[in-house]
Design a protein around this nucleic acid. Sequence first.
DNA 1: TAGATTGTTAATCGATTAACAATC
DNA 2: TAGATTGTTAATCGATTAACAATC
Lengths: 235, 235
Amino acid sequence: MQRLEVAMVKRLPQYYQILNKMKQHGQEYISSEHFARLLNVDPSLVRRDLSCLATGIQKLGYPVRLTMERIGQLLGMRNTKEAFLAGAGSLGRALMAYSGLKEYGLKITAAFDADPAKAGEIVGGVKVLPAEKLADLMSRMNISIGIIAVPADTAQGVADVMVGAGALAIWNFAPMTLQVPGNVIVRNENLAAGYMLLSYELEQNLSRRSESIDEKHVNEQAAGEQALPQGERNT
Amino acid sequence: MQRLEVAMVKRLPQYYQILNKMKQHGQEYISSEHFARLLNVDPSLVRRDLSCLATGIQKLGYPVRLTMERIGQLLGMRNTKEAFLAGAGSLGRALMAYSGLKEYGLKITAAFDADPAKAGEIVGGVKVLPAEKLADLMSRMNISIGIIAVPADTAQGVADVMVGAGALAIWNFAPMTLQVPGNVIVRNENLAAGYMLLSYELEQNLSRRSESIDEKHVNEQAAGEQALPQGERNT
DNA sequence: TAGATTGTTAATCGATTAACAATC
DNA sequence: TAGATTGTTAATCGATTAACAATC
């Protein structure tokens, strides 16, 4: 099977989510045009992305159920993967309680916290254990995914322990870039960065607006530029 | 001031976080080379990104404090923005409790939940109010940022209310793309999509590994391809 | 001065869009 | 058949990297 583009892999779950909604609405087919409108991309990008699934039918579009299934297969949503979570603070607990991840094949098997008072708690069916047990259990249970939801200053230390215990992928929610060996995958979920992008675009929008109030003649130009802040913006 | 590239705006908070760490370590300067290693990008990209700050000094690198300050200015981290949060479930509470966002200029002024039992609760200094009050308060208080942390099936409805009440930017944590008018900015923080990317890369890595065990002669090739899963991967 | 490091330009790479042929 | 819609190729756009001149 050919290697998929990174950008496309990021869009596949979005197609899946849209299909899921369509299914709930009893829709049988959806066109590339419709997908495109909902995702704010060009219809040809949708066709390009979905063509490898070979589910598209001329004149009708993409069948909802079958296409969902194929995306699930392609992304390996079926093979559930187990993960350990470090940090049972509010973000960690939110992740434990977030049942949506199960659907995508992620099962948080246990959580760990440095605070001994938290040991024994159960959130969303996940038990919190003392931090010292992480390394030993991780390697013994052969868990290859580690989720980091500890403060920025302890994140690197936790990552090192996880990697030492055999982790091959780290999903990092701490606002800090991590250093890991070349064979380990890291994905940073940097909320601050996400917010800054929103905030920056908002300021750009606002200042553009006040400009076009100041200088009346810019109207047309400004309308053209608004192509950017149209609806959806994903990354 | 020229418009900054989207990709660059997403990296600026990362530079900021690294600088912050350097400051705590008492470091005075940091080179593009050092930044690049920590972020897993090319040093010339770092220089390109930071050149507009005009803080770089030949032979020394970038002064930590001044560069942090400039990034803060450029991103408008100083002008604190107020936001309303919809949904006081576990994710919503995590956001209320996440003090880190203040540093980046985001203040969650109030939270709203459809469950009347939650009204009156206070988390991280943020009070939870009944959902019915959202629209009225949002327009009266002139709040332009809405944060959505409700389940997928109610997210669009909440977004509509927020937009109706004058929201200009929506930070969406529901796993569902939202439809908003062209003048409103949306940023989707799609955890499922983030996880799927990690999981897909992990599977690719594992199968590549087993391949190179099967066919011994692929060794060189495989080593070359591993350029991809090197350390950090952000988006 | 020599060496190190920035800033900037040109080359490359990757992702998206536009156009259109294929087909149901 | 005519019309609608997919799949695919070529063109464009945007972002990253490589190379090197400028400079402290």
